[in-house]
Amino acid sequence: MIWQLDLLILVFVIICALAAINIKDLLSAVIILGAYSFLMCLLWAEMGAVDVAFTEASVAAAVSTILFVGAVLKTTRRSKD
């Protein structure tokens, strides 16, 4: 575990989380959540948990983002907060 890399990716993850919460357009928020999941996958590979990184990349980053985008397209993109 390299602590400089760990800290850098963690800061990026927190920035992505804040952006996903504060953005008004729901489709953008969902895509930023996908980027958040990929950064999380990077964090796990760096921690040595390669199996968790694989699962995160395939399940959480890909399938979850597709489900979210489908639901947003079926409902509405606009959000007041």
């Binding site: 919460i21 928020a29 959540l33 979850s64 639901a71 959000s79």
Partner: peptide, 11 residues
Amino acid sequence: NLVKKLIGMNI
């Protein structure tokens, strides 16, 4: 917004 709540749950 309910989608925002779901994103928060994921985080």
